[in-house]
Write a protein that binds this DNA or RNA. Structure first.
Lengths: 224, 224
DNA sequence: ACCTGAACACCGTTCAAGT
DNA sequence: ACCTGAACACCGTTCAAGT
């Protein structure tokens, strides 16, 4: 994605700003102050330049965010030792992707970019697809399986981080508790039954369990 | 959520704007022109008022969006005849929620609000939890199961609608195709093997299959 | 109580010009 | 080729005042 600063073909004014510098400064802003603070103007002043100079190195803000995601995953998504058993390899790969993304909630706005999140993650995608094939799925089923895993992962992170963001701004959570406290046990008996445990149940981290469950379902469907 | 216009306790200037009118006009803007065009200023002029008048009826834009989601689900999420078999009831309820949300992609920014999307959906949540209990899960397992289903659903819609939005703005899809065309079969054999089919495979709507797979996994895990 | 005008503190992006 | 200044066309929200 970031072309490795090829030798300049034509001569002209020497660049004062590099793509790398832009991404690096953007990363610092995001990690230190949050995505909300990353604006083209803020980034420009951080670099000691003008907003417009950035548009010579980036098509638009969207491209900056994708670059940032690539940079982050390349930096943190290291290939681990994976279990030999194909099913465990699938679970471990999916967990690795999930862990890295869950650790940087700012990614949420970008990560839904496509069925694959970033080129740095391709190796993990390979492991998941290959693991599923190793369990008896056809390559086509394995791709669909990977997609199901990706949907689950992206959904888990999106829901959990926006819920957390909302909890920080209090009062809206109170409304939800109110709704659950006022449930009519005649109409919604199951929800009324678990109403007092709802918050604690939905705050638990059950992502790994869910992932395992999904993988089990995939294998049961593919290799009956 | 929208208190049913209770009789006014104190007298004063008669209101010229009602919460209902605000939501109605906002809905029209969103359905006719897209979420991006829904701004407080635009909404105010549509109503024939000023931006500030809105803040007398709404806390902020966030509240407007939640109101809009409630309004939409109350309007479109009608309780269907559900299958008697508990597993099929789970699948049918989840599918109903998914269909309604998938039909209005603008919701994506709001729908991740919490573990439940809207009070109008509570009945469907009840059906899912009850169906899972009917299949042998404990109430706690059923709630976790519902959550897994919600993550999957939210992820599917988020990923698919942002992917579609991106496809409208072309060129970034081309980059992904380039990546897949250039895959090294030595390093990533499985991905290289399906590379030419990747786009068609990941564009297929396999949401229902995935949902069934997940539910199967949940039942296998809960009632071994 | 309800609404308005004017302002604050910002955005992303484009255009025409400078070196 | 690379960068700048000034501007365009917006945002959400607050404050103080009006009726």
């Amino acid at each position: 994605m970031s072309q490795p600063s090829a030798p300049r073909k034509t001569l002209g004014r020497p660049p004062r700003i590099s793509r790398e510098e832009v991404v690096e400064k953007a990363r610092r802003i995001v990690t230190e102050e949050g995505v909300d603070r990353l604006t083209m103007r803020r980034l420009a002043t951080e670099i000691g330049s003008t907003p417009m100079a950035l548009y010579h190195h980036l098509r638009d803000k969207e491209e900056l965010l994708v670059l940032l995601l690539d940079d982050y995953t390349a930096r943190t998504l290291h290939r681990p030792e994976l279990p030999a058993h194909p099913r465990e390899r699938v679970v471990a790969s999916a967990t690795a992707i999930h862990e890295v993304l869950a650790a940087c909630p700012w990614i949420v706005e970008v990560l839904t970019a496509d069925a694959l999140m970033s080129t740095s993650a391709l190796w993990f995608v390979e492991q998941i697809v290959d693991g599923l094939v190793g369990c008896g799925l056809t390559p086509e089923q394995a791709v669909h399986g990977y997609r199901a895993i990706w949907y689950y992962t992206a959904g888990e992170i999106t829901v959990r981080t926006t819920a957390a963001r909302r909890r920080a701004g209090d009062d809206r959570a109170t409304y939800r508790e109110q709704v659950f406290a006022d449930l009519d046990p005649g109409e919604l008996p199951r929800l009324a039954q678990v109403a007092d445990r709802w918050t604690s149940l939905t705050t638990q981290d059950t992502c790994l369990d869910g992932l395992r469950t999904l993988v089990n379902g995939l294998l049961a469907a593919g290799a009956p």
